[in-house]
Nucleic acid binder design. Structure first.
Lengths: 185, 185
DNA sequence: TAAAGCATGTAACCGGTTACATGATTAA
DNA sequence: TTAATCATGTAACCGGTTACATGCTTTA
């Protein structure tokens, strides 16, 4: 099956959730989507251009007072259909994350145990930070009384982040013990 | 801080664990490392070449009977030092996995609930497959009586895969319920 | 007046994949 | 004899990042 460029669908999707400029999309992604997706201006603007060329979106130039002009993009019916079609396709393959901590652990036989444990500790604290960030965003969304139709779905993706992060943290703790036992032997 | 090319360290690491040809490395990675790292021949061979140029490895041409000639690579003391140095550096940033299921869920507000649940089911079954694969590899390593010094570290990385995969599976089940409740309201 | 935020864009680069090319040996 | 396994390699391509360029407005 042909490879898919998911980035365009991400942008198409954002067009349906109230983000109409490249700048606004970038803000949104950096703030709320970045636990499972990120994107740079170098992708956003060319993609928006291409979406218009393909008839999936339309541009409207709008000049604002006190702010620079901006290009507002809107999804077309064809674009909506394309998005819906993609949403229905089952995922083909699980993502594999390139994890450099695991890569290091894999080759840590000749390393000093305490050094390896340091790696684990740093990793754990970063996971903990991440966990708190996600929990914070979740709180924020839930306390926002304006109950958008999108919010339950946003919460779901956050929960994914929370539960896998938690599992990874538990693993850190367990692994630390394993390494210490290994050393004692 | 400058960006790092982890691939070269992966290859350097493999050189220390008994894999001396590009072909053998590829086999190894596809079989045992692929839950957190993968690599193509298009990277392996040029990287090996570069490692030699940098003085981190040495080549030895060996002709075998009944098999094609091969190039055997060996790590040099400088290479070992480079590797050890990298192993000691704490990881800078957590990997963020691009997850297209989450991307779809994020925009699934306008989708049919049962369709979304289908996505979750497929995902769950793939996770389950992955879990079994990891569990199988772990069994295999543990039952292999030749107790290499590397094995505890390999088990640790497998455990990471097992526990995060399990967490993701639990999330699938929970999310399915959430979606059904949402529909009933 | 300087920094921060709003806003759009591109060119160079880089890591990585895919497809292709080659060729020997061995087992079905 | 055909497929599978062993073995090495490259060129084209692609997705994505980074650095750079521009310019306006608001706030400190």
């Amino acid at each position: 099956m042909a490879k898919e460029n998911y980035t365009q669908y991400a942008i198409l999707g954002l067009l349906t959730t109230g983000y109409h400029t490249g700048y606004a999309m970038k803000q949104m992604i950096d703030g709320s989507l970045n636990h499972f997706w990120k994107i740079s201006y170098g992708q956003i603007y060319p993609t928006l251009k291409r979406l218009v060329e393909q008839g999936f979106a339309e541009v409207k130039l709008s000049s604002q007072e006190g702010k620079p002009d901006k290009k507002e993009y809107f999804i077309t019916p064809t674009g909506e259909e394309t998005l819906r079609n993609w949403l229905q396709q089952p995922i083909q393959e699980l993502p594999i994350e390139k994890n450099d901590l695991l890569l290091k652990l894999f080759f840590s036989r000749h390393q000093d145990t305490y050094n390896t444990i340091d790696l684990l500790d740093t990793y754990h604290s970063k996971l903990s930070e991440r966990y708190n960030t996600y929990a914070g965003i979740k709180e924020m969304i839930l306390s926002d009384l304006c109950d958008q139709g999108d919010t339950p779905f946003w919460i779901i993706t956050l929960d994914y982040g929370l539960c896998t992060t938690e599992a990874a943290m538990d693993w850190c703790v367990k692994t630390k013990e394993t390494l210490l036992n290994l050393k004692e032997e």
